[in-house]
Amino acid sequence: MTTTVERPLEKIPVAGTSRRRPGRFRKHLWSYLFLIPMVLLFGGFTVWPMIASWWYSFFNWDGVGTPSDWVGLANFREVLGADSFWRAFWHSLVFSLAAIFVELPLALVLAILLNNSWLRFRNLYRLVLFLPVVATTAVIGIVIAILLDPAGGLVNRILLDTGLVDQPVNFLGSTSTALPTLLSIDVWKGFGITLIYWLAALQTVPKDLQEAAAIDGAGFWRALRFVTLPVVTPIAIVILLLVFQRSLNTFDLVRAVTEGGPDYATDVVPTYIYRYAFDPSLQAPRYGFASAAGVVFGLLTLVVTLLQAPFLRRRLGGGKA
């Protein structure tokens, strides 16, 4: 059922030919042909711009013409020495922690529930949970501001009426509540995407097994543990990476709701970079510095990911062999 079982069978013929390299490559000729479009598109529009931005990060450059004012590592020194950068980095990290430890498991639970064919209206539920994803962020920004307003907003009115609080909560205006509030909105807005990914992942589990598991209550947990989760794991790793990456790049929402404030309590690295690269109020954009901040951010998150790698590898088990 799972891939691990089949692997040894597959390996036998491969082992015989793998010593002779030309044969090995000919065997994979088609695979390499299949990779060409991806390598071209990805190389041209992701890898190259990335390398270019590394190059720019060594310059004092405003983004126009050819960079010429070489400053060596000065931009990097400035980024690493800036408290504001580390503060933004920490906030970005908090966003990803919330996504991984709150959004991801919750979405899985709901996906398992909404994947049951016996559940009526499940398509409607899916649609509802998905709608925030496509709601225009800027409009959501103002709707949220109106709903959470400490002077007469709906949420505060409910909290006051039910006696949960005795003073209106300044959700977005206080440095202590702004970040948690924004995190919740982010989970709300992104939940639907994660849900869809989980639903797709669950499709890889053969249906008869799911049905059997659902009917037999006791078997449900065992099926989940021994059938569903192992089958889903390879894709689950991708989903984890995806959610991690998306949460690190939270940008629109922060811009629309708090613009990084108050007192930079919700500043994240993408808004930090944007301020230096594109802010229209800047006399001359500091594109080189923004690139350096991007490079440092990328390297730092890579390190964080590598720290998770042993855990991921264990989880992956035989899947990747």
């Binding site: 992701t46 890898v47 190259w48 711009p49 990335m50 270019a52 931005s53 720019y56 983004g63 990476l241 990456q245 690190l248 790049n249 940008f251 690295v269 993408p270 970079i273 944007y274 690269a277 594109f278 594109y287 923004a290 690139s291 991007g294 490079v295 951010f297 990328g298 998150t301 890579l302 990911t305």
Partner: peptide
């Protein structure tokens, strides 16, 4: 996977 972590917004110029 490594490129997933590079913020993309500012690579628009290259």
């Amino acid at each position: 996977i490594a490129t997933m972590f590079v913020p993309h917004g500012y690579t628009i110029i290259p």
